[in-house]
């Protein structure tokens, strides 16, 4: 149900730590400028990465969303940003050439970030993410809780849709009524989902300790990823790209 795609690409084989730091470096790149033209190289670059990760499928799935976000950004910033060359006014809000241009830039920036995220999600398994965070210093119990949550999402998701169907079969209609009435209609949905989830806390805790959770201070890890030359090269390259684009733009 997540966006990971099982592919054999150089991006997939990178060390999880490289992937996480690399993502951050990649996300910094579009912050270097607000000019639409200045942002186009970043857009081209992340699209190229998406191509490298053989993950265009994921972009196609959210194509409408990406475009919509860009459009929304242009509209919003046009109103909220100030500029000299006023194009027209709407009440106390005004739209200027500069603000439209800024909005365009921010739309592209938002999309660059979104696509960067997609590149990461397409080539990183959940367990790589949690393991990478651990390598970066997150304590085991925290990374474990995060990984447990990832494992439970599909289960709770199914539960939520079953509960919705069960209550609909008993005549619950979420679409009718005033806002307050509609909000209240979530009570028969949220309570069974909550109870279903939380009731098993004891069971989970028992099963965890039965498997030695917290047995010792130290623990070993079954999966280890080596830092390879390519990892260092990738990080150096992305770091340099950040430095250069901030310096140039």
């Amino acid at each position: 149900m997540f966006l990971y795609l099982e592919r054999d690409t150089p991006l997939h084989t990178l060390n999880p730590v490289t992937k996480i730091i690399g993502l951050v470096l990649l996300l910094i790149l579009p912050l270097s400028t607000t000019h639409p033209l200045g942002l186009l190289p970043s857009l081209a670059f992340v699209l190229f990465l998406l191509y490298l990760a053989k993950a265009f499928r994921n972009l196609r799935r959210m194509w409408w969303f990406v475009l919509l976000l860009g459009a929304v950004s242009i509209v919003l910033w046009s109103f909220f940003r100030q500029g000299q060359t006023i194009l027209f006014r709407l009440g106390f809000l005004s739209v200027s050439r500069e603000s439209v241009l800024y909005g365009l830039g921010m739309g592209i920036r938002l999309n660059v970030m979104l696509i960067s995220g997609l590149v990461f999600l397409s080539c990183t398994k959940v367990e790589e993410f949690t393991l990478g965070l651990r390598k970066l210093g997150l304590p085991f119990s925290m990374s474990f809780a995060l990984s447990l949550a990832f494992r439970l999402v599909p289960l709770f998701f199914t539960t939520a849709s079953t509960v919705l169907q069960a209550q609909r079969a008993r005549g619950l209609d979420l679409k009718r009524g005033s806002v307050i009435q509609r909000v209240k209609k979530y009570v028969p949905l949220l309570i069974p989902i909550f109870v279903y989830a939380v009731r098993n806390t004891d069971q989970l805790a028992m099963a965890l300790e039965s498997r030695g959770f917290g047995a010792r201070r130290e623990r070993t890890y079954y999966i280890e990823y080596q830092m390879k030359k390519i990892d260092l090269a990738v990080l150096l390259f992305l770091g340099a790209a950040d430095v250069i684009s901030f310096w140039l733009l």
Binding site: F144, A145, L146, A205
Partner: peptide, 9 residues
């Protein structure tokens, strides 16, 4: 720890 996982999930 379990409650963090359950709440987040």
């Amino acid at each position: 720890v379990v409650l963090v996982g359950l709440a987040a999930g």
